[in-house]
Design a protein around this nucleic acid. Structure first.
Length: 798
RNA sequence: UGCCCUAUAGCUCAAUUGGCAGAGCGUCGGAUUCUGGUUCCGAAGGUUCAAGGUUCGACUCCUUGUAGGGCAACCA
């Protein structure tokens, strides 16, 4: 299914934008870091059904593999026997296949690696990288410390390798009860990353595993099983969600401990939240177990099984996944995007038929009794290139939608009202002559006349009326049940609950309406479970598996048609045009006000940031001294003063500088380039000496090179050392300040981009950046930008 | 309170790596229409979180803040 943007002709030079994951893979391929291979994996835990969030992960993992000529493994991450089940394995496989992905014969289970993983455990012990701890759970927690306080070593951390080996073997042999011992990595109890504080690798659990039975009384933790499973399979790129970001260090540690490069690398992307739904497996399980919904495949569930039963197509879900993109920012996706993807796909896939949900009897008084006239009605509208039709009966007695009649029509009501006309879709224009009511005043029946010259398709049918409605012929219509589904939750973020409430309190009581008196046109009689239709003017529907025969067909509403009429009304009453405009501008004003208010509250009094705030007394006095004796900005002085090595480096460089201005520049270069580049290393160990830094700064100050080139040379110096002058000469990086040479380039460029020149002259002054950029690109950064700009401005004026 | 991540239009993402701030969805108009659907055309919508700095030029680099999120399961 093509998206519109893809169908549009792409500009000749526009490169399809790539998300950060694609950029990583392409970069790895370009630098041949994976032997040209791309292998990903989708690693679900079989403890629940897949939901639409997983669809994104599936699309990424299988999609990247397909895009770069690789493969994607399916691996069940089944290392916790307490929650996992074969039924979930089956459901997950079915859902992935339904989405259209194929994992060939690469169907793996972490539980198949249990023996190998156990051997890795032994190896870690032998290498002194793991030990058996006999602290209990609480003690381990206590020893771990907190996020702000370092932990302390377990007393068993120093156990001998032999003891560890012996204990671990006996753990595996089932000699100890649950919780007696664990295997832990020996890393660093004072690490800032809590995951690195000697994480637990194996625990004892005398629990039967759904695939391995009682083979193992010990089970590996995710943090051991996942990276090593990746490495075993030869995965190149391991994509997971953001909450595993902090696990990456441990992932790397474990893989490096056991495998040689090239090895898998983990990258994290943001999962998404969807308006009006919950997406955590735990909450979904709660809803299933508590009977809030009718199973994992309840059509209101955000599970793939739920969407499937609801009638959503896999293409719609995949398109939606493509629409929301891949990034690293937490997000909440507007439900309208999903709805768009669903409608967009179904529009071209669902044949149109008519079904009256809430029937109102209509007698065509001037139509002969006992007569039925059949006509041919197309399944597809004119703008969908498909040809097919079905026979449609018309007779004296028909049903229309109750909503399509108003006794006292509101403004702009285009449908049937006393004395007015509508067209019956694919049929005649009728006029309402009489309204029949019961004793309570409820409308029970309409008496209408038809205009026999207006039959659809006939030459005289050109006559236009403002409305067209759907209908069914009474005698041929078949009774069906229709289930109208709406969002499960009443608020956009159901997980955002006040004290003492839970997400369940936000349930939408009207998420399911069952309509049992619906009447469908006879052509649907022989449809089968899973068939999709558009019921004209209402929405998309699918035949549910609860259907037993033609008499009791059950239709699930996948989604209603977009309805600008309904969205423009408040409380069922359409606003007059004037009011509507006023309303919307009012709304606009309100949001503007609100954002302005937000902004105002967000802006604190511009507290002047004191560069010295984070410094201790000694550093502060050093900073003040540097500021005073060298005349450098306090902010730079403060940064230099954080460490003694930097002070020494700076003062050495300052001594080599031949003017006070040079000293200021040197300080700036240190703070802005050198210090960040060294990432905490001692400047004395850098390849860039104080002397060479001063030389570089001087070259720039003398205008021999531009700042841009200076930065380039700086990069080379950082990597290889050397003095800037010879690097400059060697690479031919001396600045071009030759008027004629630059003028020539400018003439060329202006000739090449005539439309931009006119745009510039028309007032789009920002384009000067583009033009300078062109000069800089062509000169490989060597042109003097100031000169280039002045020449450009001069020529553009003329 | 320590470490890590993130911040661009109402929402979700781009911006060829320092050179014209764009797209899709949504909203609002208009055209077309035997679906109040679809399609087509158009418009509005930006302090690129803030303040400072570097640069001819900053969404992009540096500094300091702010806001949101993650991390102290023998879950994954």
């Amino acid at each position: 299914m093509k998206r519109k943007s893809e169908a549009a002709p792409t500009a000749p030079n526009s490169t399809e934008s790539r998300n950060f994951i694609q950029q990583i893979v392409e970069d790895d391929l370009k630098h041949d870091r994976t032997n040209g291979r791309v292998m990903t994996r989708f690693p679900p835990e079989p403890n629940g059904f897949l939901h639409i969030g997983h669809a994104k992960a599936i699309a990424i993992n299988f999609g990247i593999a397909a895009e770069y000529g690789g493969v994607c493994n399916l691996r069940f991450d089944d290392t916790n026997p307490e929650t996992e089940d074969m039924a979930y394995v089956q459901a997950i496989k079915e859902d992935i296949r339904w989405l259209g992905f194929d994992w060939g014969d690469r169907e793996y289970f972490a539980s198949d690696y249990f023996d190998q993983l156990y051997e890795f455990g032994i190896r870690l012990i032998e290498d002194g990288k793991a030990f058996v701890d006999s602290l209990n759970e609480e003690e381990i927690r206590e020893y771990r410390g907190t996020v702000t306080r370092p932990g302390k070593d377990s007393p068993h951390r120093t156990r001998s390798i032999d003891d560890n080996l012996d204990l671990f073997r006996r753990m595996r042999n089932g000699e100890f009860p649950d919780g007696a011992h664990v295997l832990r990595a020996k890393i660093d109890m004072s690490s800032n990353n809590m995951l690195m504080r000697d994480p637990v690798l194996y625990r004892i659990k005398h629990v039967s595993h759904y695939r391995r039975g009682n083979d193992f009384p010990i089970y590996p933790m995710y943090d051991l099983a996942h990276p090593l499973s990746d490495a075993i399979e030869g995965i190149t790129h391991s994509f997971c969600t953001l909450e595993f970001e902090v696990h990456r260090a441990l992932y790397d540690w474990l893989v490096d401990a056991v495998f040689d490069p090239p090895r898998p690398h983990q990258y994290e992307f943001a999962r998404f939240n969807l308006d009006y739904t919950v997406m955590s497996k735990r909450k979904l399980l709660t809803m299933v177990e508590d009977g809030i919904v009718d199973g994992w495949d309840d059509p209101r569930m955000p599970t793939l099984a739920g969407f499937r039963r609801r009638g959503v197509t896999p293409e719609a879900i995949l398109n939606f996944a493509a629409m929301i993109g891949v990034a690293k920012a937490h997000n909440r996706v507007d439900i309208a995007m999903l709805e768009y993807a669903i409608r967009d796909d179904l529009n071209a896939k669902a044949p149109r038929v008519m079904c009256v949900l809430r029937p109102l009897r209509v007698i065509i008084t001037n139509y002969p009794d006992n007569e039925t006239e059949w006509s041919d009605a197309p399944y597809w509208p004119h703008d969908i290139p498909k040809e097919a039709s079905r026979p449609l009966p018309f007779s004296r007695e028909i049903f229309i939608e109750q909503d399509d009649f108003q006794e006292n029509p509101e403004r702009n009501f285009h449908r049937l009202a006393p004395g007015s006309e509508v067209r019956l879709r694919y049929s005649y224009i009728i006029c309402c002559e009489k309204v029949i009511q019961d004793a309570d005043g409820a409308i029970t029946e309409l008496h209408c006349t038809y205009d026999k010259d207006t039959r659809s398709g006939s030459t005289a049918s050109e006559r236009r009326v403002k409305g067209t409605i759907h209908w069914v012929s009474a005698s041929e219509a078949i009774p069906v049940q229709v289930r109208l589904y709406d969002r499960l939750f009443a608020v956009p973020d159901p997980e955002d609950v006040p004290e003492g409430k839970t997400f369940v309190d936000h349930l939408n009581p009207d998420s399911l309406k069952v309509l049992t008196n619906c009447l469908a046109e006879p052509s649907v009689k022989n449809c089968s479970v899973g068939d999709r239709f558009q019921f004209e003017r209402q929405g998309y529907f699918i035949v549910d598996k609860d259907s037993k025969d033609a008499e009791t067909l059950v239709f699930n509403r996948t989604i209603s048609l977009r309805d600008t009429w309904a969205t423009d009304r408040v409380g069922g009453i359409r606003r007059s045009d004037g009011a509507s405009k006023k309303q919307s501008s009012l709304k606009e004003a309100r949001t503007k006000e609100k954002t302005a208010a937000d902004r105002a509250s967000a802006i604190r009094p511009p507290t002047p940031v004191d560069p010295l705030t984070n410094l201790d007394d000694e550093q502060t006095s050093e900073a003040l001294r540097l500021e005073k004796s060298y005349g450098i900005p306090l902010a730079d002085a403060a940064l230099i003063s954080t460490e003694l090595e930097w002070i020494a480096f700076f003062e050495k460089a300052a001594a080599l500088s031949d003017s006070p201005g040079r000293v200021v520049s040197v300080a700036n270069w240190i703070v802005q380039e050198l210090r960040p580049a060294l990432m905490g290393q001692n400047p004395a160990s850098s390849r860039i000496t104080a002397k060479n830094l001063v030389r570089l700064v001087s070259l720039q100050a003398e205008d021999t090179i531009s700042r841009r080139i200076a930065t380039e040379i700086f990069g080379i110096m950082l990597e290889k050392g050397g003095d800037p002058q010879s690097i400059m000469d060697e690479k031919g990086l001396r600045q071009i300040s030759d008027n004629a040479a630059i003028s020539e380039m400018v003439v060329q460029i202006l000739a090449e981009f005539p439309d931009r020149v006119t745009a510039f002259k028309g007032g789009k002054k920002g384009l000067i950046g583009f033009f300078v950029g062109q000069v800089m690109q062509r000169s490989k950064g060597k042109a003097n930008p100031k000169l280039a700009q002045s020449i450009l401005l001069e020529q553009l004026r003329g």
